[in-house]
Amino acid sequence: MKWTDNLENFPYPFKGSTYRYSNNSVPMKKPFCIEVTPDYLEEMKLKRDLLTHHPERCYQSLPHTLTGQWEIVELVMDHLAEQYPNQFSLEKKGRQWRFHNKILEEKHDFTFGDETTLPDEPLAFISKHVQEDLIFMMQRDGDLFLDAGQLCFPANWSLAFNLGMKFKSIHHPIPGFKEEGLDDRILQFLMRLEAGNPWERKNWSLMAGDRLDTSLETFDQWGKLRKQVTKKNAGELVHIRVEVQKLFRLPRTNGILFTIHTHLLSLEKLASNPEWLKQFYEILSELPPHITDYKGISLYKNEVLEYLCEQLESGKVL
C-alpha cells in the first residue's frame, strides 16, 4: 500500500517563491471539520491498529475534557452525515442517537452525554471513524492547553509528552517562533477564534519514506531512512507531507477542536506538475537552515535539490 494522494486532490501548500513560518490561516469556505478521501478504508485500518496496539502513544485525555469530547462527537457526526449522506447517517431522538457508518458497515446506538453507552471515551470513539487526527485544546484562565487528543499520524511529535501543556510550551522547539513574536500572535489569534467561523491552514514538511505514523516515539524506525536518500532514489523515496489543519471553536466548552488531515505525495508525482516542480525547487533552494533543520530535511536536502534540478532540466522548464 502506498500512502500517496493523487495529484488532483493533493492540497498543494505553496504560494510565491519563498517560505517562512507564519500564521497562514484563512477562513474556511466549506465549514466541515473532516474530509473523506479515497484512502479512507486503508487509513481507518491503520489507525485502528495503531490505537489498539499503541494506545498511550495515540490517545490521551484529561478527566475534565468529557463535555468537550461530546461536543466533538456531535460536530464530527453532524458534519459526516451532512457532507457524506451516502456514507454516513445520524438519527437523533432526544438523547438517543444512532450513528451509521455505511463504509465500515457499523451501527452505533448510544445515549448522548452518557459515556457508559459507548465502547470507548467519546473522543476515542469518534476518532475511529475519521482519517483526521483530533486534538482538543481547552481555553482555561486565559491560556490554551492540549487537554485531550487522538494522534496516530504525527509529524515527529509526541501526544503523551504534550498532554496538558500550554500552546506556547508545545511550540517552544520551533526555531524563531518566539523570537519573531509568532507565538504571541498565533496564541492571540486562536483565543479570538469564534464559533461558526472556522479557519484552516496547511503545514508541510519533507520526509524520507511514506509512513503516516511518524511519531517521536518511533523515530528509531523511520528516521534512519533520511540517510538513504540519493539523487537517484529521491523521486520515489522522498515525500512531501502536507497537513490540512482546521480550527473550530466549540461553543459549549469554549474550547478549540484542531483537526489534522495528513497527505503524502512522492516527489516523483509532485515533479510531474511542471509549475509545482519549479516553484518547489525555488522554495527549497532558498529555505534557511533553521527551517530545514527543524523540518528534518537538512540531511538530504542536497540530494533532493539535485533530483529536482535534473527533473527541471529534462523537462526544460527552467
Binding site: H64, Q139, D141, E194, A195, G196, N197, N254
Partner: peptide
C-alpha cells in the same frame, strides 16, 4: 454565534 469574552475561571 455565541461568543465568550467573560469566561468562568477553571
Amino acid at each position: 454565534y455565541p461568543k465568550n469574552h467573560f469566561p468562568l475561571s477553571f
